[in-house]
Design a protein around this nucleic acid. Structure first.
Length: 395
DNA sequence: AATTCGGGGAA
DNA sequence: TTCCCAGAATT
């Protein structure tokens, strides 16, 4: 029912928030909110920002190139980590033209240690495009900015509001937390409908003037006062209007991230490369030992699809379950290539009794901490992998 | 909607 | 150790 307006794709490629939808946010406010007018809230946070903002190198002026560079560097990166990089980068490439004229390797070298290196490539490519398409002047047009590589919804709003005082919202980790708490939004603003809500909220609170400062103020508030844990509500300019503060829900808003799903995982086979030979082993069906399945010269390494197919058959033979969507075959690199199949905890429990081998340690499930040699965990999903001893000398 | 991309600091 | 960070692009 509540959704962002359809993008006017004819005139812009990426996302814009309609400012006509401000009323929608008010519709979702708790009864009696806000106790103060939005205008008061805006003035309060701007005054707080004027008095409490950190002195940061990219706040010296509002040059679009500097704003843009800082926002790209700050993406998923802490302020403390960015400061020295920002200064070094700006010293090497004082202007957008200097950056565009540079060699990509030089740019990447300066970026070394910051991580997310695709940002640097996008930055460099975007600089070149600005030279080619916009005469070397950073575009003030939202459509043009949104079309630059590496510019998403956040950076679009950040640059346009800070460098050009255009009325665009921003949502990142800080402002998301601040807005959710201020409005007392109970759902998860990071996913589904909540994602829509938080951008509408960020739009609704925007002032008419000092838009760039306001956006920064909300972020700064989240960074210094409205922190994830133990927020300093007594020194918050919005304390008296904040629903989360009123109801003592600071730790529940936004809701803690759902813990990753734990997927049981059983090792099926290993591939060992040694010298010029390749050996594929699997656990024997009786699980008493490791069986050599294939041995062949390295040059005869099977094609990838044949290989996966073969391992899939081994998995089915050993576990009695076929590899299918939702039940994947995993590849784990650990000196040798190991294969494992996912299964539910119940299935794994059922099979564990009849599945022993000299290389299978104690036949128990291990804690994640014991799996450090197995780089199998992802942010969204963790695997419990059955432990097996390293292979004995097989060659 | 889920994953990937990184490295550092804080909890 | 895990979590988190001024997100964007890809699948």
């Amino acid at each position: 029912m509540h959704s962002l307006p359809k993008l006017p794709t004819a005139c812009c490629r990426k996302f814009f928030v309609s400012f006509r939808k401000i009323a929608r946010v008010a519709m979702r406010l708790p009864d009696g909110w806000p106790p103060r007018t939005l205008g008061t809230l805006r003035r309060q946070v701007l005054a707080w920002f004027d008095a409490n903002q950190r002195s940061l190198p990219w706040r010296e002026n509002r040059d679009p190139y500097r704003v843009w560079l800082s926002e790209v560097m700050l993406q998923q990166t802490t302020v403390a980590a960015v400061v020295p990089y920002f200064q070094r980068f700006l010293k090497t490439f004082p202007t957008l033209r200097d950056l565009a004229a540079a060699d990509e390797q030089e740019v990447l070298k300066l970026w070394e240690g910051l991580g997310y290196y695709r940002r640097a490539r996008h930055l460099h490519a975007a600089a070149k495009r600005i030279i080619a398409d916009h005469g070397g002047k950073f575009p003030a047009d939202a459509t043009a900015v949104a079309d630059l590589p590496g510019v998403g919804r956040y950076i679009l709003g950040a640059v346009l509001s800070q460098a050009f005082e255009q009325k665009f919202p921003i949502v990142e980790a800080n402002s998301l937390r601040v807005l959710a708490r201020l409005f007392g939004y109970r759902n998860d603003p990071r996913e589904g409908e909540g994602r829509v809500w938080v951008w509408e909220a960020a739009t609704a609170v925007l002032p008419e003037k000092r838009i760039g400062d306001f956006n920064q103020a909300v972020m700064e508030l989240g960074a210094l006062v409205c922190t994830p844990t133990s927020p300093k509500c007594p020194s918050c300019p919005w304390a008296k209007s904040c629903i989360a503060n009123r109801d003592s829900l600071q730790t529940l808003i936004p809701p803690p991230k759902k813990p990753p799903v734990i997927v049981a995982c059983r090792e099926i086979a290993v591939v060992i490369r040694h010298r010029e030979k390749v050996l594929v082993c699997r656990r024997s069906p009786d699980a008493k030992r490791w069986a050599n399945l294939w041995e062949f010269p390295h040059a005869d390494w099977p094609a990838e699809e044949l290989f996966e197919d073969a391992v899939g058959r081994i998995a089915e033979e050993l576990t009695g379950v076929a590899v299918s969507p939702g039940r994947e075959l995993l590849t784990i690199q650990h000196g040798v290539t190991r294969f494992a199949i996912t299964m539910t905890a119940a299935e794994a429990q059922r099979q564990s009794g009849q599945f022993r081998s000299p290389f299978y340690s104690e036949g128990r499930w291990v804690s994640p901490g014991e799996l450090k040699d197995y780089p199998t965990s992802t942010p969204q999903r963790k695997l419990f992998l059955e432990v097996s001893r390293p292979q004995q000398r097989l060659f």
